[in-house]
Write a protein that binds this DNA or RNA. Sequence first.
DNA 1: GGAATTATTATACACTTGCATAATTGCGAG
DNA 2: CTCGCAATTATGCAAGTGTATAATAATTCC
Lengths: 218, 218
Amino acid sequence: MDEPNVQDDSRKFTRESAEYRREALILATLDLIAEMGVRGATVREIAARANVTQGLIRHYFSSKDELVQAAYEHHMNTLTDQTAASSGEGTALSRLSNFVDASLRPPIVDPSAVALWAGFLNKVQHDPKMQRIHQRTYNYFRDHLETLIVAALRECGRSVEASEAMQLAIACNAVIDGLWLEGGALPDAFAEGQLAQIGLESVSAIIGIPLKKEVEQP
Amino acid sequence: MDEPNVQDDSRKFTRESAEYRREALILATLDLIAEMGVRGATVREIAARANVTQGLIRHYFSSKDELVQAAYEHHMNTLTDQTAASSGEGTALSRLSNFVDASLRPPIVDPSAVALWAGFLNKVQHDPKMQRIHQRTYNYFRDHLETLIVAALRECGRSVEASEAMQLAIACNAVIDGLWLEGGALPDAFAEGQLAQIGLESVSAIIGIPLKKEVEQP
DNA sequence: GGAATTATTATACACTTGCATAATTGCGAG
DNA sequence: CTCGCAATTATGCAAGTGTATAATAATTCC
């Protein structure tokens, strides 16, 4: 995030690759939106936090709106990538457990993550393009969860119809989202691991299968 | 919400009670925060929507921040009042069912309600006073739900320890919040009544008691 | 190594924002 | 009826907003 070329000689600035600058601007934007909302994230602050002057934003993005859109897309892609990684290996049951557990601990459960989500909501509700990104990500999560649930049930010798599976996925997704929300909005109201534990028990109850938290190897 | 005195003669304005003006300003503020966020709700727009000029805001509130705080408090109080009303009569089981059901239908589930919540979040996270209001309301909801759950369990001849009851309440609260969130953020993704149905089934599963939706009398 | 390219900075502008202060004007008290 | 007070409007201001345009300077290509 800092300048990679530490040449503090009389150079007034350093040229960086377009990719580097775009990402720096996007990350600064996400930071600021989490802190102050979209309107509070001014182009001047964004530029300052990305160590450039404000004019450069217009060089990479045709408007602030476009930068915000790009930031949203970047953020959502990061989210889905993280998720995909969290439930990679093992039996279906353990993959589901790990997924729930990981979704209810830092860095997923985090005040600024919730703030970021809230900051974007207005834009999402008004801009059709952002709406599509939102819907796509939501569906991705829910389908992922549904796949895990169906696999876990099958592993226990049970099978469900498609519509029932979808309802289970919606419900489990809601528990996770609700706990995520509350953990991020009231960080001090829950003990460490409490959210994950409650999440696991609730998902267990909803799908009717006991899930155990993975034992950590120290 | 409109002017009560319809005297469109040459009067330039009408004097109203302090209470009336305060409430009009607060409601206009809530409307605008839901639409554009706190920063987007400018004093000029608020005044216009309350049918006054912007100077009057300073006459009733010492700053925009104070107006926003008052609006938040007003909103939260309205919320808790509505909740208390939704689960008034009947057996414990039916009161719990009604509470869950009412929490997952309009007007509670509503895009602007979620937008309002999101709009306030930044302020809540930064301003200790608003944080207290938030915490108080959250606790109120959770305790209310916990009371309903414990009563319903007792009605079925079961009893739970305090810590277990709290966990059940947190979990049920999370399902409700998560479904509320998703219903408000993606209004077209769910059929009418679907959220309420999923909510009832999930709460049933979590606490281990079958809940039936009340039959409506047409 | 010099010139072209273009990433980057610098400056300017029209507009909005919250707030302060002064000027009105409706309305009740006497 | 009119006088005084406070509710309300009118006006102004300094700071901040996004964006447009011109000026500079770092890097590349030959």
